[in-house]
Design a protein around this nucleic acid. Sequence first.
DNA 1: AGTGAAAAGCGCGCTTC
DNA 2: GAAGCGCGCTTTTCACT
Lengths: 177, 177
Amino acid sequence: MDSVEESYSGVMPKDRRPPGPAPRAAPDGLDEVDRELVRLLAADGRMPNNALAEAAGIAPSTCLMRVRSLRDRGVIRGFHADVDLGALGQPLQALVAVRIGAHSRDEINRFRTKVPGLPGVLSLFHVSGANDYLLHVSAASPDALREFVLDHLTADPAVVHAETSLIFEHVRGASGA
Amino acid sequence: MDSVEESYSGVMPKDRRPPGPAPRAAPDGLDEVDRELVRLLAADGRMPNNALAEAAGIAPSTCLMRVRSLRDRGVIRGFHADVDLGALGQPLQALVAVRIGAHSRDEINRFRTKVPGLPGVLSLFHVSGANDYLLHVSAASPDALREFVLDHLTADPAVVHAETSLIFEHVRGASGA
DNA sequence: AGTGAAAAGCGCGCTTC
DNA sequence: GAAGCGCGCTTTTCACT
């Protein structure tokens, strides 16, 4: 069911390009090997370089060079431990939808800058739609959560509304984070 | 504003326990060193063991043992590379709020099981409130995002409503993920 | 349980193809 | 741009405190 080209007598011209994606070199400069390395490191960020090289089918020295290049280009931003917050005494997680009033750009920027540093803040999403921001936070108890929302969000002059949803379960997807 | 106990003349009995957290051994079995190791590895998952040991004030061999214990106990679930999805050709991110109809437990479970494996799914949150699930997804283009929502969410028999919000910006908080 | 020294394995430079 | 070699360092094990 293959090798139709074998019936053709001579050597194929090297610029033969059947329709479809090229085998290597995607538009953003990442080839298949790079993508595989990224995929593997997203799954296990502590995989040793030689194991990584073998899994990707390249030499260890080449693999090291590739990974460094990926870090330098910002494709890989860093490596982080995935921590069970429950084991750290933060068994509660919540998503807080925050609506911002019609304030000055500076005021909004101040909010955007301070929030990621607040204790328990896991992620800050700036989103389209009825709400402006969505905060992913962890807390030690319902009281601590309430206190966090009241003290840092509701009390903030930029915030006109904050709506908290408890997270019953959080599952990481297969694609990255 | 401290050391009220210093005014007390003699040596403190060793079983003195003023109200408040003990200096070591939290209720969940994690002492201060463990917490520091977790914090450091959450910030940089590839920090070398000897540097980690020095930062935590313990010997490298002890450090290795502590980290292994943390992994074995599930406090540290794993290590992952933080990938710039834009560099991988997925410049769009969105949050999709999904409402589930009154279906059988099996139907809901099927949805919950299939979603994390769908291409582009970064996280699945099961939340309280008007919506049942919130999906954090990435996509290559607006068309790809629309296609994803229509094919995998709207078309799913368990789903009665799906509302997509584009993510303009996503900032990681200081506390973990 | 924590530490220190010794052995094994890895990271990472340089050189060659 | 990719692979092989070699040194230096890190990781990891083991006996000891």
